[in-house]
């Protein structure tokens, strides 16, 4: 309890007051509108909207593909981070800088670029089509877009932890007779695990809500390749505001749950590595 503590520095009330006012106006009040609008539906109507077969199919696609994309990113993101921290090779600085491309490149641009690559006549699609593999305009297209979007989350979460790792730990393991794989498996990986899971969760959370890059490549076939955010847009275009809001409510609850999980994972990361204290 430090309620009456004397502040030597000026500006506490005005900056905190401004922060709270701006946060409430831009973020909190409008989000409340979602929950209030949802109450205009009865419980039965709400359940009917959010469990309609087409909507359920979109949950399966969104969550399934987001999980798969986050898993792929966890593997390759860890590998990229490892390579960037541990090895010197030609072009490393360029690779390091371009890892953030998905943060900087507008999602619509990413969407049409990936579609151009993976369409049946695209750079990569033309080689996959004879093998019977279709990516663009099919569910795998969603996966490709979500892998692109999520990659930097894993790399940039894992990289700093890897950089701060003490070499003494590995030297101790080696001097005790562990081979390189055992050292990685039993010494390095346990320290990395919280950061890796945080990166996985961040990539997953981003993928679930992603819209711009996915809609171009997904093909948006009802029951097959429609993502949940697209269902909200579809309802809005039919002026079904209550329906759109009901689906948005489901997504918001999932986002809040993920936010709590991510906060927990980050706290765990700091505890394991002693960083950011």
């Amino acid at each position: 309890m430090a309620a009456t503590r004397f502040h030597a520095l000026p500006g506490f009330r005005i900056t905190l007051g401004y922060t709270l006012a701006y946060l409430s106006l831009i973020v909190l009040l409008p989000i409340t509108a979602v929950f209030l609008k949802t109450t205009s539906l009865s419980l039965a109507e709400f359940v009917e909207v959010v469990s309609a077969p087409r909507v359920v199919a979109s949950y399966k696609l969104s969550f399934g593909m987001s999980l798969a994309a986050a898993a792929i990113n966890a593997v390759f993101g860890l590998m990229l981070a490892w390579v960037l921290v541990r090895y010197s090779f030609f072009g490393k600085r360029l690779v390091d800088a371009l890892v953030d491309l998905p943060f900087a490149l507008p999602t619509a641009v990413a969407g049409i670029a990936l579609t151009a690559l993976y369409a049946g006549n695209g750079w990569l699609g033309q080689y996959l089509a004879p093998l019977g593999i279709q990516i663009a305009f099919k569910p795998p297209g969603v996966l490709v877009a979500l892998v692109f979007i999520g990659l930097p989350f894993v790399v940039r979460t894992v990289q700093p932890v890897l950089e701060d790792l003490d070499t003494e730990l590995e030297e101790a393991a080696t001097s005790l007779g562990a081979d390189r794989w055992q050292t990685f498996r039993h010494v390095i990986l346990p320290v990395m695990l919280p950061a890796l899971l945080t990166g996985f969760a961040l990539a997953f959370a981003r993928a679930v809500g992603e819209y711009g890059s996915v809609i171009f490549i997904a093909g948006n076939i009802p029951m097959v390749s429609e993502i949940t955010p697209l269902m909200i847009i579809t309802k809005l275009e039919q002026y079904d505001y209550a329906g759109a809001t009901a689906i948005a409510t489901v997504m918001l609850f999932i986002s809040f749950a993920l936010l709590l999980v991510i906060n927990g994972l980050q706290a765990w990361t700091f505890k394991c590595t002693g960083r950011d204290r």
């Binding site: 409008p30 989000i31 979602v34 959370a205 955010p229 909200i232 948005a248 997504m251």
Partner: peptide, 12 residues
């Protein structure tokens, strides 16, 4: 953490 689509929806 909020989907961009929902960010637009709240202002609508």
């Amino acid at each position: 953490s909020v989907s961009p689509v929902i960010a637009g929806l709240i202002y609508v």
